[in-house]
Structure formats: structure tokens, C-alpha cells
Design a protein around this nucleic acid. Structure first.
Lengths: 217, 217
DNA sequence: TAGATTGTTAATCGATTAACAATC
DNA sequence: TAGATTGTTAATCGATTAACAATC
């Protein structure tokens, strides 16, 4: 039963394959070779074949890959064959933006509740999703199947709430707070979205690009 | 004048160093060794020294690094010594959430305008920032110094608008639309934030973790 | 000076690319 | 069957870690 660990570098690329395959389906393309796909996606055909073969042989020699089949298989790999219930902690702008984003539902990620400390938001709904007070968190988790918690509150509170969530039995955190969560319990998956980090990376590349433009040209 | 290219793997880590150094300053710490920092950040001391030495020698043998100095130098590397003006295309939930996020301003990223096609939003302000109609885009760019454009509109429109932005002289795009932008002009820096990709990566790890828990325990 | 810790070179590890035999 | 294209092994490349001489 030894499962070989697949690197996160590979995992990070899977959603992109999934997206391109979805577009191919929309375009009515039935099959595609790793070579053709590599040209569209700007990666090497080798990488595509290596990546996919981490999970099994989805293609056929002399034929290539069946687009629809591969799309579905990658969906399964990414866990999209099951529904995931999400709660959002922090019903500020970002939290409400997430609640309003219908795209996630199409992928099977259902936002089933928002939580905040601001009494003015108590009972307010966003696209039909109710905002609860934070103190109801544990009870809500006991009464509902919650798979993922998205953290959008200020970083000062993130650690404490993350640990409350873990205690309430949640094993997955989508962290938008600008901290590295310190979770004593190791059995938790954290995915960070650090917007300001991303903006700083862009800023670095802007400066570098500008420099190159000024000297290079 | 040959500039050695620094890998994006290194660049991606710089904002994290910057954040930890900021916290050390808040804690009143004056100096730190790569070894102590490595323990806090959960990386190797070797990596810290290698990363920093891409940009120069900021430390001192037998002493370590001066926290404040290193913080400022990394800030400069990331371009935070200059102000950056941002416009946001798409004044929906996400666009407005970005406009409301004061954190960016503290880092020198000023959002100076929002753009949308919805006439109902024309002239509305978000935290004092005005929403313009999309057709005013070119004129706005001509009259204002715009450094970065954040794209938060539906993906169908993203490519066309990205090219308009490039034509209007913008060299940096912070792309939240779920497409890979195809920009004919190569002199543009793009940073992607694909929230659903990130969610799918989390979903994969949830499934893997669950499997491990069920068999492993 | 002795001790500490950097900057940097060398060794290792992992990820990507190339090559090709297997096979549809 | 001949041609195409995969799955997979081998080669290369790049990134991370270890080691240590330089030096504060």
C-alpha cells in the first residue's frame, strides 16, 4: 500500500491541464497528443507525459489522449468528483467576494456559511448565504459537514481561529490572512493565498523589466 | 553590465523574508543570524544566505544581519521604495475588495481608479476611489501615471482588455481572470492569481490527506 | 585573540527535458 | 503493416543543502 508522494510542483500544474482540456471540450476537440497540447500550453510534451504518468497511463500509443476522458480523470485526481462544503471566516469585502464567486460552485465547492464578529452583519445574507456570529462556529461545524475553511480575517486573529477550526474537526484551511499559520496538529492541509506577496513579486519584475528596457534597448 | 538573472523561486521567497523581518522589527529585535531566522521560518540557513547573496552581502561575519537594514534592502529589491499606481479593471466584488484593502497602500501600492462596463456603477466611489466607465480607460492612462493594472473581469474579456492596456503603455498586469493572457507584446510582466487553481490544489491535498489518515492510522 | 557567522564553493538532490523502445 | 505517439528510462539542468575558508 506504499503510495509514492507526488511533488507539489506537479500538483500545481494539474488545474492548468484541467482548464485547457475543458476549453478543448468546448471547442469540440476529441483527442489530442501531448505534442499538440504542449504547443498550446507552452510547456514541453515530455513534461505533460511525465506529469500524467504520475497518476496512471491515460493515453494510448499512436492515438494520444481522449480529451473528455483525461478531463474527467484529472477532475477525479483533484477531488472534483465530490462536493466540498466551505465556510468563510471574515465577512468583509474579500469574504463576501468569495461568497459571490459562482465559479467555485461549478467546480463543486459550495460556500455554506460566513462568519464574522461584527454584530451588524448578524443574519445578513450574501447570495443567499447567511452570515453567522463567530461564537456559533463550533456549533455550526458540529451540525454541518464542513470540509474547508477560508480565512479572510485580519492576521492577528488568524492563528487562534485556525486552531479553533482544527479543534472543530476541520482538516483544510484556505488561508488569505497574511501569516504563516502555526498549527500544532499536523493533520491539516493549508493552502496560502498571499495577495500582497504576489503583488510584491510583480513589483520586483516590473522594476527588473524597466531596468532591462532602459539599458537593453 | 551583464545582469545575472535571478530565479523566480528566489523572488517568490523574498516577500516572506520581508514579512518576518518586519515582525522582528516590531518585536524590537536588532540583529539576527541566518541560523536563528531559519528556525523561525522553517527553512535552511543555507537557503537564506544563498537567497540574500543573489542581491549582495547584507550580513557581517560573526554578527549576522542587522534586521532593520536587511528589511529596508529587501524592500528596495522588491521595489517598495517607490510608489506604484494601480488601476483595477472590473468593479465587481473582487475589484472592490482590492480597492478596500488598505494593506496595499502601506506597501506603496495605491489604487487610483476602478473601471467597469456597468453604467450603474459610473461615478460611484469605493473608499474614495472612483469607478470609471471602461471606455475612459485610454484617456485615464494618458492623464495618469499607471504602473499596474489588476484584471478582475470575466475571462472572456480579459485578453482584449489586456491588449488595450498594453497599447495604453502599461507594462504590468496582475491577472485574476482565469485565463493565461496571450500578449503579443513581450515587454509586459504578468502575475497570475488563479483562485480556483489554488482551491483545486487544496482539494487534491485534502483528498490525499484523507486517504493517508484512513489507511495510515 | 577566540568565537561566531557570513559568503561562497562543492555536493546532493529533485525536477525537467531528451531519447527511444513498446505498442496501439 | 507503417506511422504515430505513448510510457518510461536516461541525461541534463537547476535548485537546495552541506561544508568550510574568510573575516568580522
Amino acid at each position: 500500500m506504499e503510495e509514492k508522494e507526488i511533488s507539489q510542483a506537479v500538483i500545481r500544474r494539474m488545474p492548468r491541464y484541467y482548464r485547457y482540456l475543458g476549453e478543448l471540450i468546448d471547442d469540440g476537440v476529441e483527442r489530442i497528443s501531448s505534442n499538440d497540447l504542449s504547443k498550446r500550453m507552452n510547456v514541453t510534451a515530455s513534461q505533460i507525459r511525465q506529469d500524467l504518468n504520475n497518476f496512471g497511463g491515460f493515453g494510448q500509443q499512436g492515438y494520444g489522449y481522449n480529451v473528455k476522458y483525461l478531463y474527467e480523470e484529472i477532475g477525479k485526481i483533484l477531488g472534483l468528483n465530490e462536493k466540498h462544503n466551505i465556510i468563510v471566516i471574515g465577512a468583509g469585502n474579500l469574504g463576501q467576494a468569495l461568497a459571490n464567486y459562482v465559479k467555485f460552485e461549478k467546480l463543486g465547492f459550495m460556500i455554506i456559511g460566513l462568519f464574522d464578529v461584527n454584530p451588524a452583519l448578524d443574519g445578513v445574507t450574501v447570495r443567499g448565504i447567511k452570515i453567522h456570529m463567530l461564537e456559533e462556529l463550533e456549533q455550526f461545524c458540529a451540525e454541518n459537514q464542513v470540509d474547508i475553511a477560508a480565512l479572510t480575517m485580519p492576521k492577528a486573529k488568524a492563528d487562534a481561529i485556525a486552531n479553533r477550526l482544527v479543534d472543530a474537526g476541520i482538516h483544510a484551511i484556505w488561508n488569505f490572512a497574511h501569516v504563516d499559520l502555526e498549527l500544532l496538529d499536523k493533520d491539516v492541509v493549508v493552502e496560502n493565498v498571499h495577495l500582497s506577496d504576489s503583488l510584491m513579486q510583480l513589483s520586483y519584475n516590473v522594476a527588473r523589466n524597466k531596468k532591462a528596457r532602459e539599458s537593453g534597448s
